[in-house]
């Protein structure tokens, strides 16, 4: 069961530098063919300030900079019983290599289904740029099998 004491907690701010190499590797892994997602010169030619981060890359930045508190351990996450139920992005501004972003995550909800056999955890992460503008929000739903 997820640790109910974490409900409502907001993590520390995590500052994340968006690295060109990480976007390139991600784009390769997902079979991306549009060079603005992996080729710096193609991105520059297209008038972009860096290589563009693919649609779901923000999730990776979040994974690479997990909250220290509450951490996955604090939340009682057991990876062997964990499944990813839902993920949602609300997009406000694009992300490019070279950007410096700030992530902050709130533990929004926890609830049980199927008589406690399944336990749900919802966390919302806000991503801001250096100007303090909201870049995107990510809503993450995890489910843990109990018993």
């Amino acid at each position: 069961m997820f640790n109910r004491a974490c409900l409502g907690l907001v993590s520390e701010d995590r500052i994340v530098d968006v690295e060109l190499g990480q976007i390139k590797l991600f784009s390769k892994a997902i079979g991306e063919t549009n060079p603005i997602y992996f080729d710096e010169s193609a991105a520059k030619k297209a008038g972009l300030r860096g290589v563009k981060a693919p649609l779901t890359f923000g999730f990776c930045l979040k994974s690479l900079a997990p909250a220290k508190y509450p951490s996955n351990e604090d939340l009682g996450i057991d990876f062997s019983r964990l499944l990813h139920a839902e993920e949602k992005f609300d997009y406000f501004l694009p992300i490019y290599s070279g950007d410096r972003l700030t992530f902050s995550t709130e533990v929004e909800d926890m609830y049980e289904k199927k008589g406690g056999a399944l336990d749900f955890l919802i966390r919302t992460t806000k991503v801001f740029n250096e100007a303090g503008e909201l870049v995107q929000t990510q809503t993450n739903t995890l489910v843990m099998r109990n018993g």
Partner: peptide, 29 residues
């Protein structure tokens, strides 16, 4: 990874419109 399929499906979207036109994108696994 569920997120691998979400990323691939994201490519379907960005192959159809410019990424900056996408306002929200959410999935259930």
């Amino acid at each position: 990874h569920g997120m691998l399929s979400m990323a691939v499906l994201g490519r379907l979207l960005t192959g159809w419109v410019e990424q900056d036109q996408i306002r929200t994108y959410g999935v259930r696994f």
